[in-house]
Design a protein around this nucleic acid. Structure first.
Lengths: 198, 198, 198, 198
DNA sequence: AATGAATGAGTGTTCATTCAT
DNA sequence: AATGAATGAACACTCATTCAT
């Protein structure tokens, strides 16, 4: 089930599959750089295909965008899940968080997708979003069990914080490590010495 | 130069001032909701004036946007400066941070302005930005002196964190108080018990 | 307030007259430089009056343009007539022709008016055009009587040649004197030695 | 550079070529009649295509205008060159001059192009202009060698005179043949009997 | 009378999407 | 299946003209 129509979708011809992949690849790059603002013609040109071909594979621009996002979200979710199932789940949470911000901060498309919460909520995105949230949730749970993360934080909170860090990293105004460090510190359980209001 | 400079010009006629204000108000709302994507015609329509009127007051769409931003930045800067000069500067920092995020979180325009770091750096914006940074810097300094905030954070870091919180609050996905709480906690001096990596 | 005499067009108030003159003066300059492309607002600004004032005196932009043209055409016609009535009418023709081209070549408005043959033929323009043609005709007749100009040329031909010389002078590509010299030579009676086709 | 250069591109599809030609044809007519003032939408409408189609073939209004001009200038230059290389170069000059004016007089676009000396000097126009000037220069040289044309006239002068004649012919006020005859006479070597000032 | 603010039709240009080849 | 030409709705901005102050 890689494309829109599950019932009739016979396997694509070899060249068609190549084209589809090429378009995705280019779109991924271009959207990552400049976000949704890039014209479809530009993507087609860079991919070395006609516009028509892009539209054959993705019925609308948004659908193309979504396809990219879906993949990304899935990848993020997978990574989180794998880590959660590994031995270092407790400490891995923060590493994952930092890594994620590093990787995605340069990806405008992913940022937009995460940030544009709901605007793109078509079916696929929702599903992929679930995958991501599940993986992240597992990782978070382990970290909380290990006492590394405040227990009152939900997956949604963490996702939100991640988006925020992406937004900050995108700024380029401050050292991303410092920023992420601050946010990570904030997520740790509150020690007596720094109770807010104290 | 008798007419170009807005600061030199005589006060606007009553109706003109009303229209200008109405346009600003509407643009503020609309930009806040939908960002720069809104057509000028739409703004004019909602404000109940012709397009020409919008352009009479603001020579460019960007100029209109800028006008809104400038006002906001100034207001934020003023608030910070006042607080910094008050008696509670040490503790006031966090209150200000929270307040700021609360107020501005629904304002996409302000977020964009803060986030679009430099893209809109025309003269006025730069100036207003300075006002804000100065006010914020004063407040931060006091808080650091009082030992409430990590001493290695710069104004730019704080501004970046603020923008991040705005981005997060905009999401509407998580409780803004919680989010801001986390970030504020992260800004407090590191206590031995939660040294990163510990 | 002062509703004295409603019937006849009383003389303009002093300030009104001054304004009207000022507008004409500025419009003359500006139209001469840039032709009809200049916005009315620009003219008003340069004249130091509001747009409304311009429109009070001249109901449309074309009317303003016409007013200027009329004056110019009249002036040209007058000059020609005076010369025609003077003693040097025979030789004066060429001097006039050259002079005219010199003077008007920098005046884009006049050129446009002469060139835009008919487009502006409102009443006033037509009348002024007549004045010009008449004066020019008188001068031409004398020159032809004196055997200085080919007898088969009509006033219209001469006017046309004048416009052509203006067009050429406007080009700035060739020495106007040379150009005008060529055309003037062409208007002289055909000597046996250079019969076309010989 | 795989796609930007028009000279590299493969031949257009049949329908595209038809549309392009149709647009050029219509634009030629319309510009000839009314000059640059005509909206692109109007041209598209008259050509029976959408605006987008016009813009696909010509990226800018100016580019469209230029395309027309270039073609004309080239044609004129070619004609001149051919004549210059023929046996009748001496006498051909005047025939060419007359012919040129006849053909182009109704063409406001060509006139504008020639007249707008430099304003449109993009690359292509400049090149086409060179072609024309070269051809004309060759023809002129021959005519001067044959003693048919004043030896102090340069190509630029002749071009200017040509533009002037076009301007005059455009007027429609006088018989073009007569006008051109006058100018041509003026270009012949000065015979003793009509020395200016005599 | 004078002012200049307001109007809105009009213009050049872009780009997502459709369709003939 | 692929192509890329065609489409036309949108949009930012201008400017002649009107009208409230």
């Amino acid at each position: 089930m890689t494309s829109a129509d599950p019932t009739t979708s016979r396997p694509l011809r070899a060249d068609a599959r190549r084209n589809r992949a090429r378009v995705l690849e280019v779109a991924q790059e271009v959207f990552a750089e400049e976000g949704l603002a890039v014209p479809i013609d530009e993507i087609a040109r860079r991919a070395g295909v006609g516009v028509g071909t892009v539209y054959r594979h993705f019925p609308t621009k948004d659908a193309l965008f979504e396809a990219i996002i879906v993949e990304r979200l899935r990848a993020v979710g997978e990574a989180a899940r794998e880590l959660a199932e590994g031995p270092e789940a407790g400490t891995g949470f923060f590493a994952f968080f930092e890594q994620m911000v590093q990787n995605a901060s340069l990806n405008r498309a992913l940022f937009d997708a995460l940030a544009a919460n709901g605007s793109f909520n078509r079916e696929l995105t929702a599903e992929a979003s679930n995958v991501m949230m599940t993986g992240l949730g597992q990782l978070l749970a382990k970290a909380q069990e290990a006492g590394r993360v405040r227990s009152d934080l939900t997956v949604t909170d963490v996702k939100t914080l991640m988006v925020g860090c992406l937004a900050m990293a995108r700024q380029g105004t401050a050292d991303p490590r410092l920023i992420v460090g601050v946010v990570c510190d904030g997520m740790r359980p509150v020690s007596p010495s720094r109770t807010p209001g104290a």
